[in-house]
Design a binder for these strands. Structure first.
Lengths: 249, 249
DNA sequence: TCACCGCATAAGTCATACTTTTCTTGATTT
DNA sequence: AAATCAAGAAAAGTATGACTTATGCGGTGA
């Protein structure tokens, strides 16, 4: 048991197998720009030595990163880092590495702009076609927000549950890919902007308005109320980031 | 030269290496549900035999698919297909396989709903912060649309160039991931709905309105005009798919 | 009936040899 | 001197075989 513990520590692993550990490490290194297109990227042989691992696992790790658009390998030329434009930024791993790299206000703004695109539309779709259980999940999340206001639940978790439920209820497979991004944004927003707007009674009421519109099948209302909701967060971020104010749209 | 040709044909490859060919083949097989979570997935050994390939390449191919969320391998348990919810649907490869699987009207509607979310917001962002060259690219695309109307350019390509330019001008890294999806949607829409709305003079004028709003820095206008533009396509699709009409939002 | 142990299995890791592609270099030709 | 071509080298791609590790399953005993 202790030996197992020691091995883990020695390998720096978090219970992952060797391949995943190397992929993780290299992925983070690329995203944090420790390797760039200019810098170049180590050869297989060098990576083997560096990690004390066999060629197989190194190659498999590299293959995973090429699958995510971070790398490209060619015979004789070696492995090169791809330009950021071809990274699969919505890939959960890439997203995680990106957030580890710098969770700046600007990144948070980019995230929130995405939410601003996705979630109002999702709310409208939910109003038009959410199933019974999906509507129930939305309503339940609202109840949790009010409970949280009384200290009987966690406000952040309730907030996340609400947004997740709405996106889920859009019944659009592609929009569902954004639940993680939405959740990550909420979790980090609260750290960055020390004023968390989510706990106040006013916020819970605003959220309930969105939920009501969805339940009533009022797509236009749901959409624009959701937009206002997120726009509030966005404006806080823009202000915190020192960006010039502009009209909402 | 001829020998090369023959080898290609024999291996069924399109100039790809063995690993990529297998990954492609398996990826398509999974997405087309030839393998499901219930069905099970072949063991490494079986795949080696099936493809007449070594374990190395099979393992690397499988690793690429796990990186895209399609598979999950565990010792003793074998490799299993993941539920569709954990696939990275925005991954270019997965997207391609998905389109090869069924380019149904419903899929096209899902795509268009995504465009409906992304592009109006992108247009607004472009109005607020597009650079000079970015604005120029948008204007140029509009010129191409009018040229196409005179038979001096390709209408579809001009249309695609316009939407691509707007998304690019959003200067949001995540929105940029949708250029491919947008392009694919346009290319397939024209095949499915034999009435292509893109060639008419009216359409070119509508597009120019969006462009003008962007160039003038009118975010709200750009956003809502873009929404109307795509909403037109969406309504055609909904009608063609036999979906009940509902209010725009 | 239930908990435990050991075995079988399939993926994970390693080492090594060989192949293919492609860049470099330098000799050959014009 | 410039262009062309051929030989060599370098790095990824492929193949094979052996060993390791995790884990599901069935049998054994309390």
């Amino acid at each position: 048991m202790e030996q197992l513990e020691r091995e883990r520590a020695a390998s720096g692993g978090d219970g992952l197998n060797v391949t995943r550990r190397i992929a993780n490490d290299l992925g983070r290194a690329i995203v944090t720009q420790r390797f760039t297109a200019d810098t170049g990227f180590p050869f297989e042989s060098q990576l083997c030595e560096q990690y004390g691992a066999s060629r197989s696992v190194v190659r498999e790790a590299v293959k995973m990163l090429t699958a995510k658009g971070l790398l490209r390998a060619r015979q004789r030329a070696g492995t090169v880092v791809q330009p950021e434009g071809s990274w699969n930024l919505l890939d959960p791993d890439v997203l995680r590495w990106l957030m580890e790299r710098d969770f700046s206000i600007d990144l948070l703004i980019d995230f929130t702009e995405m939410r601003m695109a996705i979630e109002p539309r999702a709310a409208g779709l939910a109003a038009n076609g959410a199933s019974g259980p999906q509507r129930a999940a939305i309503v339940k999340a609202i109840d949790r927000m009010f409970a949280a206001e009384q200290g009987e639940d966690d406000p952040l978790e309730a907030d996340i549950a609400f947004h997740r439920a709405v996106i889920e209820a859009s019944n659009n497979r592609f929009m569902r890919q954004f639940t993680d991004l939405s959740e990550a944004t909420l979790r980090f927003s609260i750290r960055r902007t020390n004023a968390y707007a989510g706990v106040s009674r006013a916020s819970a009421i605003d959220h309930r308005r969105v939920a009501n519109a969805i339940v009533e099948g009022n797509a236009r209302g749901a959409s624009s109320l959701m937009r206002e909701l997120i726009d509030g967060a966005l404006r806080l971020l823009l202000e915190a980031g020192g960006h010039p104010a502009h009209d909402s749209f």
